[in-house]
């Protein structure tokens, strides 16, 4: 994935913290860890078949980040005609760090923010970004 822009697509869930962890991990990759190498688009735009969004995912590597087992981000990318290069369930990161329980849905608290750091750092390695932070684990 080194020489292309990677599209990271988090799900849109706002019922549990894991959707927000996916979104914040996406922003962390875009702005902190892999600026210029990662972008995102609105999942809803993809769902209505917006031409720009569809082209973006078809022409670039895609990582989906899903907050629950419904895998909506992955399924919607597949519906747009693209198999994601990597499909991540955020809950798996939490399973490796059960001490880091988010304290809110949109305001994740310190434990949730730590999970964001861990997930984003692991994904940065796959995207081949240099700025890996310490303390990461499997996504």
């Amino acid at each position: 994935m080194a020489n292309k822009t990677t599209v990271v697509l988090p799900c849109s869930g706002i019922g549990k913290p894991y959707g927000e962890i996916g979104r914040q991990s996406t922003y962390t990759l875009m702005e902190d860890l892999c600026p210029g190498k990662v972008t995102t688009t609105c999942l809803a735009k993809l769902m209505i078949g917006d031409p720009d969004a569809v082209e973006l995912v078809k022409n670039n590597p895609v990582i989906t980040l899903d907050g629950c087992a419904q895998d909506c981000a992955r399924k919607n990318v597949e519906s747009a005609g693209k198999k994601p290069d990597r499909a991540v369930r955020v809950i798996n990161t939490f399973k490796h760090h059960r001490d880091l329980k988010p304290t809110g849905i949109l305001d994740l608290g310190e434990p949730g923010r730590k999970l964001v750091e861990i997930l984003a750092s692991d994904l940065a390695l796959e995207i081949d970004c240099p700025a890996k932070k310490e303390g990461s684990a499997d996504a």
Binding site: C11, G13, L43, A44, M47, Q70, C72, A73, K75
Partner: peptide, 25 residues
């Protein structure tokens, strides 16, 4: 943020949220 405020604080007994991607799926 606005929807969560309605769901959690202003109208908790009268509102639910629909997850748009799940609705499609």
């Amino acid at each position: 943020f606005a929807c969560r405020k309605v769901l959690d604080q202003i109208k908790p007994n009268n509102t639910v949220t629909i997850c748009l991607p799940l609705f499609i799926n």
